[in-house]
C-alpha cells in the first residue's frame, strides 16, 4: 500500500477541525492547526505534507495570507481554501494566479474535495513521470 497522503487542515473552529479529521481520516493522514502561524510551524516540522486546506476567516492572518507565506517556502504543495463565505475577489485572484488550486464551500462536499485532490495529485505524478521518462 502506498503511503497515505499527508494533509494539513487549518481552521479556527474546533468542531470543524474534529469533524474534518473524522471524515477524511479514512482517505488521508490529517494534521490540523488552529491558525496560520501554527500552520506554518506544522509545515516546518512535517515536510512531507502534500496537501494544505485552509479556512479563510481566521485570527492573526486570513487563509490567503497564510497560503501566500506557506507557498513561498513550500511551492510544491497543493493549496486549497475551504470557506463559509462566497468566493471573494481575493480568492478569485488567488485562483487566477494559481496560488490555490480550488476553493471549496461550506458545508463541505466530501466527494468534491476527495475528487479534486486525487486529480491534482495524479496530474502532478503524471507530470513527474513524464519528466523522468524524458
Amino acid at each position: 500500500m502506498i503511503d497515505r497522503v499527508k494533509l494539513l487542515y487549518v481552521e479556527d473552529e474546533p468542531i470543524n477541525r474534529k469533524l474534518f479529521q473524522l471524515i477524511f481520516d479514512k482517505d488521508y493522514e490529517v494534521l490540523t492547526a488552529e491558525e496560520g502561524v501554527q500552520g506554518l510551524s506544522v509545515l516546518e516540522k512535517e515536510q512531507d505534507i502534500t496537501v494544505v486546506i485552509s479556512d479563510m476567516n481566521m485570527p492573526i492572518m486570513n487563509g490567503i495570507t497564510f497560503i501566500n507565506k506557506a507557498k513561498e517556502k513550500f511551492p510544491e504543495k497543493k493549496f486549497y481554501i475551504l470557506t463559509a463565505y462566497m468566493i471573494s475577489e481575493e480568492i478569485q485572484s488567488a485562483l487566477a494566479t494559481g496560488l490555490i488550486l480550488k476553493c471549496f464551500g461550506k458545508p463541505f462536499n466530501r466527494n468534491e474535495i476527495v475528487a479534486a485532490i486525487e486529480q491534482d495529485i495524479n496530474s502532478n505524478s503524471l507530470e513527474k513521470n513524464n519528466l523522468s521518462n524524458n
Binding site: 473552529e13 468542531i15 470543524n16 469533524l19 474534518f20 473524522l22 471524515i23 476567516n57 463559509a84 463565505y85 462566497m86 464551500g105 461550506k106 458545508p107 463541505f108 466530501r110
Partner: peptide, 17 residues
Amino acid sequence: SHEINNPLNYIMGAYLG
C-alpha cells in the same frame, strides 16, 4: 451566510461521520 454555513458544516460533518 457565513454564520449559517459554519453550523451547516457541523451538521454535514456529523452526517458524514
